[in-house]
Structures are given as structure tokens and as C-alpha cells.
């Protein structure tokens, strides 16, 4: 308490978060891998040698070329090509972009719904709580896949394949977001129940503040830590859900492939020896999900209030 004021940056540098991050090699490595993958995905149009969405650039004669270093490879396609002759490296970069977009988008939607319903259920309690939490239970008893299959089938039938290709990404965000909100709502509700017993909430009530102000300005900021932890893990889950849906043919169309639909498209050619079309995007998916989960684990350890005091 020697200096009068600390900037946000100073506070961060003195925080336990930064301290434990510096000491955790796994967290640092995961963070570096994740950031480079995210950057690569964001800047895919600049980095990729070819544009996989541009049909004019694709030559069917180049199909199923192996990655560099194998017999019959072409140095123009470092990771080989897929069955349609698209450059696999470019397709993976664009695919990671799609997967990450869906992952983040779905979690933003989940968090918005989860935080709102969780806050309402936890703070208002009583009947509101019972109704919202029963809805959550019902929601959780359907698996994400089942909901997606039904909604996806309805969408496909009513919009047709072409139109579906354009809205697929929003549909996936919607399906995964809506079917997973109870996870976040439950976490929020649990921490709201703990927070609302604390005296600073009573102090706010005694001041005469309105319910909405107390909920969003006083309680919500104090429930962010667990939301942050669960949201990180949920991004990984959303990416996996998307991959699974795409693998089943209910996700992204092959003209606009995500990692999942790339894996699926290559799956048919494994028998004919073109294993790389499936294996390489598969590896990328595994690494992506793994680093997010490792970061999530680290965050959970750091933000666990029982371990972190003062």
C-alpha cells in the first residue's frame, strides 16, 4: 500500500493470475499455440496459398495429391489436396476459422442466455427459479445432437441445400448456443445464490437501488470468474459439437468446410489411401480442443476461491 494509485496494467502484473501463468509451462505453451491458431485463422485470407471458396482456383486434376515428402506430391500443395483438388493447407486454415467462429459465437449466445436466466433464477428465487431451472432440466435432457438433427433436418427441408449453405453457420451457432445454455445458467445461479447472501448486496438494497441495478452492477461482476472458466471449456465443447454435427453431414457444407466437415469429406477416401485428408484436419481439431481445455483447467485452478485467497 505504498503507491497511491495503480493502473489496470500494474494491477494485472501484480495479480495472482499473471503470477501463476508465468509459472505454468503448460498454460504458456497452450496459450501460445491457441493464439497462433486463432491468428492464423483470422488472417487465413492473407496466409493461405489459395482460396478454397473460389471454384475457379480449383483443378480437379490436382485431387488427392499427398503432402510434401511423399511420392507424387506437388510443392504447390504443402499438405496435399483433398478429393476435389483444393489445397489442404488453405482449406484447413479456412476451416479452423469456421470452427472457431462457431465455437465463440455459440458460447457468446450461451453466455448471454445463461447469464440472464441464471441471474434471474438465482436472485429472484421462488417461482421464477423453479420455472427456469425446470426448463433447463428439460433442455439438458435432450442431447445437443438430437436437437441439431431435428432442427437441421427442418432447415434443410424448408430452405433447400443452396440456401442452407449460406445460413448453416448461423444455424449451428444457434443450435449449439441454445442447447447448452443451462450449463452456464446453473453455474451463474449457484454463484448468485452465494453472492446474494453477502452483506454488500444488503447494503445496496438498503441504499434503495433497484433490483436490476443490484443484479447487473453489483452481483454479476462478482460471478464472472466461474463464468469465465466454464465458458472456456464450453468453447472447446462447442467446437467438438460442431465437428460432430458436420461429420454427420448436418453441419457445414463441403463448399464451406469446417474442420469437422473436412474430416468427413476425407473419410470416404481413407480406404483408397488418401489418409491425409482426414488425418491432418483431425490433428488440428484435436490440438485446438486440447489447448483450450488445458487453458480451461489452468483457469479453473487459478480462480478456485478455495485455493486462491487474498
Amino acid at each position: 500500500m505504498t503507491t497511491a494509485t495503480l493502473s489496470r496494467w500494474d494491477r494485472f502484473r501484480e495479480s495472482f493470475l499473471w503470477y501463476s501463468f508465468k509459472r505454468d509451462k503448460v498454460a504458456i505453451a497452450s496459450f501460445i499455440v491457441l493464439v497462433s491458431m486463432v491468428l492464423a485463422a483470422i488472417f487465413a485470407p492473407l496466409l493461405a496459398p489459395a482460396d478454397p471458396y473460389d471454384l475457379a482456383q480449383i483443378n480437379i486434376m490436382n485431387s488427392e495429391l499427398p503432402p510434401v515428402g511423399l511420392d507424387g506430391s506437388d510443392p504447390a500443395f504443402p499438405l496435399g489436396t483433398d478429393a476435389q483438388g483444393r489445397d489442404l493447407l488453405s482449406t484447413i486454415l479456412y476451416g479452423t476459422r469456421v470452427s472457431l467462429l462457431i465455437g465463440f459465437g455459440a458460447v457468446v449466445l450461451q453466455a448471454a442466455l445463461g447469464i440472464l436466466f441464471g441471474l434471474l433464477a438465482g436472485y429472484l428465487g421462488g417461482r421464477v427459479d423453479s420455472i427456469l431451472m425446470r426448463i433447463a432440466d428439460v433442455q439438458l435432457s435432450f442431447s445437443t445432437l438430437m436437437v441439431a438433427i431435428i432442427v437441421g433436418a427442418v432447415f434443410k427441408a424448408s430452405f433447400g441445400n443452396l440456401m442452407f449453405g449460406e445460413i448453416a453457420i448461423y444455424m449451428l451457432i444457434f443450435i449449439i448456443g441454445v442447447s447448452e445454455w443451462p450449463q452456464i445458467a446453473r453455474t451463474v445461479r449457484a454463484s448468485v445464490l452465494a453472492e446474494k447472501k453477502k452483506e454488500y448486496v444488503d447494503a445496496a438494497k438498503v441504499m434503495g437501488f433497484r433490483t436490476r441495478r443490484i443484479m447487473f452492477r453489483h452481483i454479476l461482476p462478482n460471478t464472472l470468474s466461474p463464468i469465465f472458466v466454464i465458458a472456456t471449456v464450453q468453447i472447446a465443447n462447442a467446437i467438438i459439437s460442431e465437428a460432430a454435427l458436420s461429420f454427420l453431414g448436418l453441419g457445414m457444407p463441403e463448399t464451406q468446410p469446417s474442420l469437422g466437415s473436412l474430416i468427413k469429406s476425407g473419410f470416404d477416401y481413407i480406404q483408397s489411401g488418401s489418409w491425409w485428408i482426414t488425418l491432418i484436419p483431425g490433428l488440428v481439431l484435436v490440438v485446438l480442443v486440447l489447448v483450450i481445455n488445458l487453458l480451461g483447467d489452468w483457469l479453473r485452478d487459478v480462480m478456485n476461491p478455495r485455493l486462491y485467497k487474498g
Binding site: K198, E199, Y200, D202, A203, V206, M207, G208, P221, N222
Partner: peptide, 28 residues
């Protein structure tokens, strides 16, 4: 609410941990 105020038992729980002292005092 303005005329009647309250002081609580636990000084560790009665201040919002995410608000600065300035914010805590300005808001009311």
C-alpha cells in the same frame, strides 16, 4: 432509504469486491 442507513457485521463481505472505494461511495 436515505434517512435510514445500516452498518453490517462483516467488513470483509459488506464492500463489493469489484468496486473501488470511490465507486462504492459515489454510487449512493
Amino acid at each position: 432509504r436515505r434517512k435510514m442507513q445500516m452498518i453490517f457485521q462483516n467488513p470483509y463481505a459488506s464492500l463489493n469486491p469489484r468496486m473501488t472505494i470511490q465507486q462504492t461511495l459515489e454510487e449512493p
